[in-house]
Nucleic acid binder design. Structure first.
Lengths: 123, 123
DNA sequence: CCTTTTGTATTATTTATTATAATACAAAAA
DNA sequence: TTTTTGTATTATAATAAATAATACAAAAGG
């Protein structure tokens, strides 16, 4: 599994792993129902501790992106079981902050929306 | 100065202060060129340590939102001096992650753009 | 049966971050 | 001269992040 990590980033590694997997599912590089690599193999691949990957998987499980099972490993949920976006108040607040920064940073509403449109990849 | 802080949040207090000020400027609640409260008064207002507010001001200064001066205090920059948004790669990556989560979470591209449009308040 | 594999729990340790506290400083303004 | 400004300093405490080594329960494969 390809995974771009930035060890200089202020974003913790386990969160970066979580984010990369979410983007992978969103882009279609990881399929719904697909079995993720085991924590041990992924940890070896990217050169981090087993528990760091486990922490990422646990978070993905808690957020409803995957189901982890001691016996079956980690499996991506079905499309219709993914966590709802519109009802997530945290995401709304993130968008408001980003939009504020955009407005201050010289982006008109339409320019901002163009960037948002570009960020959303149709599957 | 009104400031909503969540001490249960995983976002550090100094970052929340920074974010609230950026949103305040973006919403027009804080004017360009306006003098911000002193670190001591804001710290007393919201009940945190002086250095916590100082850290927020220092970050805002480094990012180009305000100018701090030992003698003149903290002053919001002019509109045309605000940090550029479109060229900020970090913001692009944030948008891509959000868009991925939106796509997985049942938001069509248009629904996602509606949320983005709603988040951007015209001044 | 036995071995392997699974995610995770546990314990210990190290490092970095966050926040508080009390003090101090340089320099402009009053 | 005194006050006010942001910030530097030093110390301390609490929390978070990452590593390390080990262990466990339970299913799967042989």
């Amino acid at each position: 599994m390809i995974m771009e990590l930035d060890y200089q980033s202020e974003v913790p590694v386990y969160l970066q792993i979580r984010n990369e997997i979410v983007k992978g599912i969103g882009r279609g590089q990881i399929d719904f129902g697909e079995q993720l690599p085991t924590v041990r193999s992924l940890a070896a691949d990217i050169g981090v501790n087993t528990m760091t990957v486990s922490k990422a998987y646990k978070l993905l499980d808690q957020q409803g992106y995957i189901v982890t099972d001691r016996r079956r490993g980690a499996v991506v949920c079905a499309k219709n079981q993914m966590p709802d976006f519109a009802s997530n108040e945290g995401h709304r607040k993130e968008l408001i902050l980003l939009a504020s920064e955009a407005a201050l940073g010289g982006c008109s509403r339409e320019e901002f929306l163009d960037m948002c449109r570009e960020a959303y990849v149709e599957t």
